[in-house]
Amino acid sequence: MYTAFVIGNIASGKSCATRYLEQRGALRIDLDAMAKDLYVPGSQLVLDIAERFGYDVLAPDGGIDTRELSRVAFATPEDSADLNALVHPVLIEQLSLRLLPPLCCTVTAPDPELVVVEVSVASAFTDAFGLADEIIAITAPLDVRRERAIERGMDGLAFDERASCQPSEEGLCALAQVVIDNTAGDDSLFSSLDQWLADRHLLSAQEVTQ
């Protein structure tokens, strides 16, 4: 099993990249979705988040209102760091269970050829990079990403708040072994991913050239 972490700032195209690789046959893990699954009503994590960000972040069922949490937790880099400090240890533990082979010899688990993990907050997740065989950065300039986000319906100020909590493109790319430029936002992204698969002999030739 080959594991690649795909990193990228908001509206860079990392979700598009991981979904494309999933279509090619990879197992895709979205860390944002995995984190939301951790917000179990009554859990210690939910209680810790509510104590730090206020009980308004609680949903009617006792879980987390992710929209409200995003609003308050991405207000400043300090707030984002505090949220990451609460969520990431639990998230890394769960991700390790998905990626590492079971300790018990009687337990069987799927062994996909390629696993791609979509990582939204790369700079705060570097302590988990040892779980990956390779880190791929999807990059695009800030102004291009802002325009894309607004075209998709995101408020410009909300984008600015989120972007201010993320690393520069240069800093992001420095975390990766492979950098794919998605400034164009066209099929060249898929061509680059196909070439990456071919260079590493991942997935069958038929899957890659479809």
Rank of each mutant, 00 (worst) to 15 (best):
L58Q: 08
A33C: 01
G54A: 05
T66R: 15
I10S: 10
A26S: 13
C16L: 15
D30L: 01
D48T: 00
Y20R: 01
Y55I: 05
L31R: 08
R19V: 13
V57Y: 09
A11Y: 08
R28I: 04
D65L: 01
V6K: 06
A26V: 06
L69V: 01
A11H: 05
E22Q: 15
A26W: 02
R71P: 03
R67L: 05
P41W: 09
R71Q: 14
V57S: 10
E51Y: 02
A26H: 04
N9C: 13
G25W: 08
F5N: 02
V72R: 12
A4K: 06
A35W: 00
I64E: 04
A50L: 00
D37V: 00
A4H: 02
R52P: 07
K14R: 11
S70Y: 03
A11P: 02
A35Q: 03
V57I: 12
V72E: 09
A4N: 01
N9G: 15
G25S: 02
D32Y: 05
R28E: 05
T66I: 12
A35R: 01
G13K: 10
E51G: 03
D30T: 00
D37K: 08
L45I: 06
M34N: 04
I49V: 15
Y20N: 07
L38A: 04
R28S: 10
A17Q: 13
R67E: 10
Y39L: 02
G63Q: 04
D30M: 04
F5M: 12
R28C: 09
